[in-house]
Every structure is written in structure tokens, then in C-alpha cells.
Simulated scan of single mutants.
Amino acid sequence: MAKLELYIPVGRQKLRCGYTTGTCAAAAAAGAAARLLTGETLPAVRIATPAGVAVEAELLRHAAGEGWAACAVRKDGGDDPDVTDGALIFARVERADTPGIIIDGGEGVGRVTLPGLDQPVGAAAINSTPRRMIAEQLESAAAKAGYTGGLRAVISVPEGEALAKRTFNPRMGIVGGISILGTSGIVRPMSEAALIDSLYLEMDQRRAAGVEDLLLTPGNYGESFAREVLGLNLHRWCMCSNYLGAAIDHAAGAGFRSVLVVGHLGKLIKAAAGCMNTHSKTADARRETLTAHAALAGADRALLRALFDSLTTDAGVELLKQAGLLGPVMASIGEALDGQLKRRAGEGLAIEALFFSNQYGILGKTPGAERLLALHRAEPDGETAGG
């Protein structure tokens, strides 16, 4: 069967769209309901998505028994595949004793264990839009077959528990498998948007758990340093990846009281220059920023040239250390970082930062960082642990 032939421009390329796990689940439910209610084994189904795009999905692994039928759809991530690309999404549909539509998750579909997500605690991690899509397909199949009783659909993903370990689900308190997602039904090959959406979800979950003071790290280096070197607990922690500016904006809007950023110098030196998306494709001002602050601290021309030619910030730190300028330069970077962060956060959100090197340890802090460090070393009162 031909793949979804829908393309969008991304930069200089045209990338092919795919369809979400929610669309897969709805299509599989449509096929299983048709088999159950009419006895017909359909090779494929065509369903409308909320994006207004019709998707034709091939139906695989047909099975049926007394009062039930099942089939599967293979996830197509298009040119922006995530960890679920190629996974089989199954739907088993059975007649129910009570009227209406019941939707639940089976093997490989996670369960929500913490508040703040799309579904309540205890529910299968099948979001609202996929639930609506599945229900619409079951209602349509029942109407065509003249069936007026109830139907129960169970969505499963045999690989889901293993796949979930490569997603944000464990940190968000979704256990046992993946989430069935998709607000539009279509996967658009823009992974940045998906990452930011996941970050916002995690932050919202922390806020729903009562967290007011947030700990942010750009990546695993920051998380490890915060836990192992600084002795911080991670009850209030989120990883913001390259999207520091987006995280600060969301924290301000979500009503957090403070944000403490702990990151490697290689990341936060970019923020000190005003680059709040730290991906190298967006901005990589590390050597320019380091050189500029060294010049402000009185470095000579030879040192400035050596700093400008450094391949890493750690190499630059070693040069500054040898020249006796490490302290003044890091202090200058810390002052610039403090200004950029407070300008982005605005009046209502307290924000501080600490930056480090794996080789040299703590390199600098913003003026109020010690207060927030002490707060994050203490056990939070009445907050739900996570992360």
C-alpha cells in the first residue's frame, strides 16, 4: 500500500508527513469493528483526521473469535519518525453489556500515575483526540451495521513497554508503555515542535503536583551535575534540551515562582549572548562570546586569537586558567547571563543559574543562585516526587 503522499516544506526540503499513533488506533478500531459487526475482513480503511486529511491505512494481523475481532495498523512517521515508527498498533473490539463506547489500553499502552496530563490518574494514556477518533469510527461502524448495543475497544502495542523507555513517559509518570497521541492525526516532520510540546507537558505536570520552584537542565550533563555534584534532589526537575527560552516563557505563564538553571558552560554561554535556542543549527556563539568576555577582562591579542580558535569551551577554560583570567572572565559571563535570563523571565519569575565544566567543576553563578541551590537541596514539602 502506498504511504501517505502529503509533503510540507521544511527549510529547503519537502518532507513527507506521516500519521499518529492515534490515527493508527482509530483505523485499527474501524477495521476490527467491521469484522466484528459484518464479518467482512477489510484490507484497508480510509478515515478522516482532525487536520482535514484523509488517511488510507492498511489493516494487518486480522483475528476474530466469539464476540470480538482485532487487527493492526503499522505506524508511519513519515520523514520525521519517532520511536514508534513502524510499530504495530492493535485494536480489539468486542460487544459490551452496556450501551455506549468504552475505550481502554492493553499491553504496551501506558497508564497515567501522576496528575497534570491529558487523562486522569489511572486511565490509559490514550489522549482525548485519539479517544474521540476511535469512538467516531466505532459509532460509524455500528450505524452501518445497524448495531445498537455497546462496544469496547482495547488498544495495544506489543512493543510499547520497550519503546516507552526511549520517550519522556517514565519521567511524566506514565508507566507500562507508550502514549496514544495526536491532536491533528497527522505527523508533521518538525521534531522541534514535538519536543517543545513534551517539555510543556512535563512542566505542566510539575505545576499540577504543586511545584512552584523549578529546576531546569539543558541535558544529561546538567542533570548528572545537579544530582551528583551539587547534591540537588530532582523532585522539581525538568530537562529543557535546547529550548531554554521556551521553557522560561512557559514557566512564567504557568505560574512558577522561580527557575534555577544548571547547565554546562558550552550551553549557557550561548544564553549569555542572548541565544535562547541553543541548538548549534540555530546559534553557536560560544567562541565569539568567550573571546569577547576575555577581551573585557583584559586578555592580550594572542590569547584572544587562541580562544577564538578553540574547538571547545573546555579548551578555552584551560587557556584562561593558564593566563590567570578564568575568574574575571567567568564572572563577566555570569553577569551577562544573569541579565539575559532576567530580561527573558520578566518581573514575575525569579530566575538564577549555575554553569560548570565536567573537567573544572563550577565555573560561575548568577548573584541569587545560592538561595535557589539551598532550596533545591531541601526536600520539598507536600510535593509529588517525579523525574
Rank of each mutant, 00 (worst) to 15 (best):
K281H: 09
L296T: 13
A193M: 11
L325Q: 03
C240K: 11
G316N: 04
E223D: 06
I174F: 13
G231P: 08
A26H: 06
S241N: 05
T49R: 04
V55C: 07
A26Q: 05
G116W: 08
H235Y: 11
L60T: 10
N169V: 09
G327S: 04
T217I: 11
L216K: 05
L234N: 00
A272C: 03
T384V: 15
L230C: 00
A374P: 06
A297I: 05
T366V: 12
G108I: 07
V229Q: 10
N169L: 07
A208N: 02
A273K: 03
E288R: 02
G346F: 12
A208P: 02
G368D: 06
N220M: 06
A295F: 11
A87Y: 14
R301E: 03
H250E: 06
G18K: 10
G346Y: 08
E379Q: 15
R371L: 06
A295V: 10
Y19C: 06
T312S: 03
I103L: 00
D197C: 04
L151S: 10
V112C: 01
A142V: 15
A194I: 09
F225G: 00
Q322M: 00
P81K: 05
E228W: 13
F168T: 13
R16E: 15
P218Q: 07
F90G: 03
D79L: 09
K144F: 15
A272D: 06
A125D: 00
A302L: 10
R227N: 01
N233G: 03
D314W: 08
A292P: 03
M190W: 14
G231Q: 01
T291K: 04
A143S: 09
E288H: 05
R111L: 04
A143R: 12
L181A: 00
A350Q: 04
L60S: 03
A96C: 07
R95Q: 03
H279K: 01
W237M: 13
S156G: 04
A226N: 01
A369G: 08
R46F: 08
S191W: 11
R111Q: 06
L311P: 14
Q340K: 01
D300N: 05
A336W: 11
H250D: 03
E318N: 06
T384E: 11
S258C: 07
V229H: 12
K14Q: 11
F355L: 10
S191T: 08
A331D: 13
L326R: 07
F90I: 12
G122K: 05
G348N: 11
K14V: 15
G298I: 00
A57V: 14
G176E: 02
G298H: 10
L6W: 14
R206E: 05
V329A: 00
D82E: 04
H250Q: 06
P328W: 01
A70T: 15
R188L: 05
D338L: 08
Q137S: 04
I186K: 04
G22E: 01
N242Y: 07
V154N: 02
L311M: 02
F355D: 03
T148G: 07
T384K: 00
L307G: 02
A96G: 12
L4E: 02
F225W: 14
A254H: 13
A57T: 15
L181F: 12
F256P: 03
H250G: 01
A162Q: 04
L341S: 02
A226F: 15
T289V: 10
S140M: 01
Y243G: 06
R206H: 12
A164N: 13
A141Q: 09
D82K: 04
K342S: 05
D309I: 00
G368V: 07
P115G: 00
K3D: 15
R188K: 09
G146V: 14
